[in-house]
Amino acid sequence: MRASLGERIGNYTLLIVFGLFALGPIVTILAAALGPDDAGGGTSGFGNFGKAWEIGHFGTYLRMSVAVSVTVVVVSVLFSILSGYAFGTMRFRGASALFYLFLIGIMMPTEAIVVPLYFDLRTLGLTDTFWAVVLPQIAQSVAFGTFWMRAYFRSSSRSLVEAARLDGAGHWRTLWLILVPPARPALVTLIVLVFMWTWNEFLIPLVMVTSESLRTAPLGLAFFSGQYTSGFTLLAAGAVIVGTPVVLVYAFLQRHFIQGMLEGAVRE
């Protein structure tokens, strides 16, 4: 396609301007985190992270976030494989009605369920526990995961499933030996999405948790930003600590993020 020099310059200018607009706030916070401590603490560069880590208790928060994320990812991906397998490859009475029930969960906002959940879990004495943070998020991820894995298993070849049956493989072996190994790309996408959603979740831990030791990283950052008012450097360092894990995974698996978030949104 022929394009004049002026047009090409215009196009690249557009590309760069919007690239900078997207990066600007992120660069601002990175630069502030690496600059000299504006509260006069005498640290700069990576020293800021050490200091923020110490006074912001980010070690505790990150440990909680890792525990929550790993639990939610492992349990919800496992449950989603099982339910997606059933919905995608088996016929049973009420299957589509049950599947639509799961679809409701994809659209349901956390705001709607967090109020009754809190008061019911309080009655059971379960608020301010690890499970109060984890179980509602497993439920949300299982709704999406079921939808995601069903779509994958449905598209996987019928002949594959039937050949396995003729070979005498049971439904359990068919799933784990025949269907799951080639599903790796779909599974990686599901894992990174669930990890991102869980790591970044704010409302559920905010409502469910009061002990400091149970705060997740974003929640800890919100408290830190409310309490630490003497400067911006250490707050920025804390924000970088909290944001980095997902951004790191994104740097390596960005195709999975983009594809998953776009395809997950498109109805079948």
Binding site: L78, S83, M90, R91, F102, P116, L135, P136, V142, S157
Partner: peptide, 29 residues
């Protein structure tokens, strides 16, 4: 239609997901 024959075992595969989903999302709604 999904590949494979009618199978009651499907309910068992759905059960774990349905339990946690029902208890922590549908029931709260």
């Amino acid at each position: 239609s999904p590949p494979g024959e009618p199978r009651r075992i499907g309910y068992l595969y759905i059960l774990p997901a349905l339990l946690v989903y029902g208890a922590f999302l549908l029931y709260p709604l």
